[in-house]
Deep mutational scan, measured.
Amino acid sequence: TRVETATETAWISLVTALHLVLGLSAVLGLLLLRWQFPAHYRRLRHALW
């Protein structure tokens, strides 16, 4: 049971790290898009909202 718990903890930390990385890359990508294509971003936002 001790090994299982350790594996579970490792998986949880791995998944958390993955989610953090994905979230950060998504935010960075959005910022980059907004910085590179302001007109396109505004049009996209206008279409979405």
Rank of each mutant, 00 (worst) to 15 (best):
L44H: 04
T16W: 07
E8A: 11
E4S: 06
L14E: 03
S25R: 03
V15N: 06
W35L: 15
P38I: 09
L18V: 12
P38G: 08
E4F: 10
A39K: 12
L32Y: 09
V3P: 01
W35G: 06
A47L: 07
Y41R: 03
R2M: 15
L28R: 02
T16C: 14
V21Y: 03
T5Q: 00
G23F: 15
I12F: 08
F37V: 05
R43S: 09
G29K: 00
Q36S: 09
A6V: 03
L48Y: 06
R43K: 09
L14P: 05
S13N: 08
V3Y: 03
T5F: 04
H46R: 10
R43F: 04
H40C: 14
H19I: 15
H19C: 15
L48D: 02
T9H: 10
L18P: 04
R34W: 02
Q36Y: 10
H19L: 15
V27T: 09
L48P: 00
T1K: 10
V15F: 06
A39T: 13
H19F: 15
I12R: 07
S25E: 02
T5M: 06
H46W: 00
L20W: 06
L20E: 04
H40Y: 13
G29Y: 02
G29R: 01
L30W: 09
E4A: 11
A6M: 11
A10I: 13
R34I: 10
Q36W: 13
E4L: 08
L30V: 14
V15H: 01
H46G: 10
H40A: 14
A6Y: 04
F37M: 05
T5E: 00
A39N: 12
G29I: 13
T9W: 15
T16F: 11
A47C: 10
V3N: 00
L32A: 14
L18A: 06
H19Q: 08
T7A: 15
V15T: 07
S13H: 10
W35K: 15
T1N: 02
W49M: 00
L22M: 08
L48K: 01
P38S: 10
V3L: 09
L48W: 05
L31I: 14
S25N: 15
R2S: 14
E8G: 09
L24N: 00
R42D: 08
R45Y: 05
W49C: 00
W49N: 15
L32W: 12
E8V: 04
V21M: 12
V27H: 04
R42W: 07
L33W: 07
T7V: 08
A47K: 09
S13G: 13
L44K: 04
S25C: 11
V27D: 01
A47W: 12
L32K: 03
T16M: 14
L30A: 11
R45E: 02
V27Q: 03
Y41W: 15
G23R: 01
L28V: 09
A10Q: 07
A17Y: 04
L22S: 13
W35I: 14
L22N: 00
G23D: 04
W49A: 06
L30P: 04
L33C: 14
I12H: 07
T5N: 00
S13W: 15
G29M: 11
L30F: 12
H19V: 15
F37G: 00
Y41M: 14
E8L: 03
R45N: 03
S13C: 15
R2H: 14
H46P: 00
L44F: 14
L20V: 14
T9N: 09
T5I: 04
